[in-house]
Simulated assay, not measured.
Amino acid sequence: MTRPSQDEPTASNPHQVRDQVERTRQELGRTVEALAARTDIRGRAQEKAAEVKEQAAAKAGELKAEAVRATSRLQDKLPDPVRAQAAHGTRLARDNRTVLLAAAGAGVALWLLCRTKR
């Protein structure tokens, strides 16, 4: 059996001994929990991943809001004819999305074919 620490007086009656044992059990339980948490590498990694994911989502939201503000400022500075032409181009792209995607796919395929022949 171990000796009590210097800062904790020894118990003089059975009630004090029980209290001292209970305190020691609680301290030991907290110590074991802390050690178990430190050795749970997978759990710690998952917690860290969740934390990083949350931070990334928050940063992405900030960047998106800043991009919207910058786009709005740029659109306000554009002359009216340019703004109208850009809106017309956007409408055409949305209306012909399938054709646009097919042309982009064909361009990528052509680029890959030319690249592999070298």
Rank of each mutant, 00 (worst) to 15 (best):
M1Q: 08
R3Y: 05
P4E: 07
P4S: 08
S5G: 15
Q6P: 06
Q6K: 12
D7V: 01
D7E: 09
E8R: 15
E8I: 15
E8K: 15
T10H: 10
T10D: 10
A11R: 02
A11D: 01
S12I: 10
N13W: 00
P14V: 00
H15Y: 14
V17R: 11
V17M: 11
D19S: 14
D19W: 10
Q20C: 03
V21A: 13
E22H: 13
E22L: 14
R25P: 00
R25L: 10
R25C: 07
G29N: 13
T31Q: 12
V32T: 03
A34H: 04
L35C: 03
L35W: 06
A36K: 10
D40G: 01
D40Y: 00
I41L: 12
I41F: 12
I41N: 12
I41A: 14
G43I: 02
A45Q: 12
A45M: 08
A45H: 07
Q46V: 03
Q46D: 09
Q46P: 01
Q46F: 07
E47R: 12
E47Y: 03
E47W: 03
K48V: 00
A50I: 00
A50W: 02
A50G: 12
A50R: 08
V52D: 13
V52W: 02
Q55S: 08
A57Y: 00
A58Q: 11
K59Y: 10
K59V: 09
G61R: 03
G61A: 05
L63P: 00
L63W: 03
L63Q: 11
K64V: 03
K64M: 06
K64Y: 03
E66Q: 04
E66M: 01
A67S: 06
V68L: 04
R69K: 12
R69M: 07
A70K: 11
S72H: 07
S72K: 07
S72P: 01
R73K: 13
L74I: 05
L74R: 09
Q75T: 10
Q75R: 15
Q75E: 12
D76T: 10
K77N: 09
K77Q: 13
K77R: 15
K77V: 04
P79V: 01
P79C: 03
V82T: 14
R83P: 00
R83N: 02
A84I: 13
Q85P: 00
A86K: 08
A86L: 15
A87P: 00
A87G: 02
H88I: 05
T90F: 13
A93H: 05
A93T: 08
A93N: 06
R94D: 07
N96L: 08
N96V: 05
R97L: 15
T98P: 01
T98Y: 14
T98N: 13
L100E: 08
L100A: 11
L101T: 07
A102V: 04
A103L: 04
A103H: 03
A104V: 02
A104Y: 01
A104M: 03
G105L: 05
G107M: 11
A109D: 11
A109S: 09
L110A: 14
L110F: 11
L110D: 14
W111A: 14
L112G: 00
L113E: 07
C114E: 09
C114F: 09
R115L: 08
T116Q: 12
K117C: 12
K117F: 14
K117R: 15
R118T: 08
